[in-house]
Nucleic acid binder design. Sequence first.
DNA 1: ATTGTCTGCCC
DNA 2: ATTCTGC
DNA 3: GCAGAATGGGCAGACAAT
Length: 642
Amino acid sequence: MHLAAAFEALAATTKRLKKADILANCFRSLLALTPEDLLPAVFLSCNKVAENMEGVDMGVGGSQVTSAILQATGTKPEQLRRLNRSTGDLGDAAQACKANQRLLASPKPLTIRGVHDALLGLARDGGTGSEGRKVAAMAKLLRACQGPETRWLVRTLIRNIRTGATLLSVLDALAAAVAIHTLSSRSQGRVPVERIAAPRIAAAQRAVRDCYNLRPDLPLLVGALIEGGVEGAVETCTVRVGMPVRPMLAKPSTGVEDLLSTLGDGSFLVERKYDGMRAQVHVAADGQVTIYSRKLENTTAQFHDAAAAVSAAVRSPGAGLIIDAEITAVDPAQDFRLLPFQMLSTRPRKGQQQQQDVSAALASSSGTTVEPSGAPGSVAVCVVAFDLLAYNGAPCLALPLEDRRRLLAEATVAAEAGRFILATAETGEQILRFLHESIAASCEGVIAKRLGRGSEYVPGDRGSAWVKLKRDYIPGLGDTFDLVPIGGWYGQGRKAGWLSPILLACWDPDSGELQSVCRCMSGYTDAFYKEMTAFYLEGNRTLERPPSYVSTGENCPVWFNPCEVWEIRGADLTLSPVHTAALGKVPATVGGSKGNGGKGRGCALRFPRYIQTRQDKGIEDATTSNEIAEMFCKQAVRQGTS
DNA sequence: ATTGTCTGCCC
DNA sequence: ATTCTGC
DNA sequence: GCAGAATGGGCAGACAAT
């Protein structure tokens, strides 16, 4: 399979231009010779099987793939584990297993389409016995691998290809390939197209990225490119109500000054950053509501009540609307107060099938009642709308933010208080005050958004028009924790050879225990990794089993002799099924969610990252479980779950 | 019927 | 989600 | 400053094992 050779070449260089060249050449030859292979090649290159909105899951991961490798190569589990540990890559490990293997009869060689079809086949299989069948199917593919194909098949199956090129680079390569193909077929290959084509290629790349951001649908895009080139794609790939648009994202900032300098001159608005799930809500002309997640999964089934709330709030869908929003958990019994993310995440993902549309909602406002519940017993939600991407069936992305917000306000009415609202925002310049108010109102922080010029909605962009600020981004504002490293795992990929992540614990003076709070793998420099790994592994500071005074639900391959304290920052504390910090000192359930059989739960830290080593502290000076319990309770009061 | 493991997705 | 690194 | 990579906590759901 000629794609494996391209991947091999991609992974062999760190140069971005060279990678672009390799992929573009690969796509060019497919375009010229077997265009029907282009789409599967594009999918495989960006490590996808299908678009997210199709809901296609292979349902296999490291564990099942490991079984398949064992089955296909006859390797001993212990041997494969050793190879995986030393190479830091299951694909490399499998490649090594396969290298010492000779087959009696070689099966049919793999093809791009054949592999992609096989992946779709994995996704289609299900029900009793499906795991065994999937493992067998993967083993069959692995047996047919030649040369470097094993590495790439395994990396594909575990969705971690590490070629150094992902979706954006793949799209750029695709655009370049199509642009050159178009030029060279017009000039019948007589002109050295690469020379004259550079600006044209850059334009094609911008156009193709735009296409994908407006209409993230690779089959549609690739089909249009083959049929009508870049121009054809631009015509085809447009915003349509009912089809997802890549959401615009916000860039993090470390403080007010940083935020302002990123935003640049000009006016802006600050908006609360609600801690829920992103929701792109499409209301079709016939009233049908579809909700897409940030990664463009169709989550309508999870949020029928949210869909109903939008139906009720929309005055008239006209030819269709697209609303950008955050869905948050709320407590109707406490005046629809916001509840923490962890509550929202307990919602069943597959709601009952029921039709929600505007006509039903209109009926409700004129007397008949529509029960806006999700699945029985699930937390109530509120749709917090903050932007409008299409109005009366037509995209309004190019309008300035203030105009989009005005249209959003005109198009909707908070019919049922607390189930649909517009995001709280203001145009004042007192960002820090607004940040504190937002946090007091159970929000994560704020997002500042440019107004006027440069405030268009740019799908897929994480640029400077939206800047987010959270308490824990600001040095000195958020909580930090002084935690003790108690164990670790062997790093993968670029962190092979280092210990990563590291398990960290707080100190419980009452029991004399170190209780785990989180794993951490962020915030360390490469130099720190080298030093730290040597400190523990070569410095004779590891143990066979965890010391008796260590308490955790985790099982590390490497346990430390606990001896130092690291400062760790995080966003907030959650109740954990595996970490034991402050166990018994905090309530055992998250609000109304189900308990866990009386085992009790400890606290864990959300979004942990390393700040510095506290050389001045010993393990008994670490943050105590009592301090953690106190922080958790304070936070619960703020969040309305106490 | 219950429990444990794995996956995929949210942040 | 957060962070670091090479281009 | 972008793009890529390596990972964080934690949930529901799908299967397998008991």
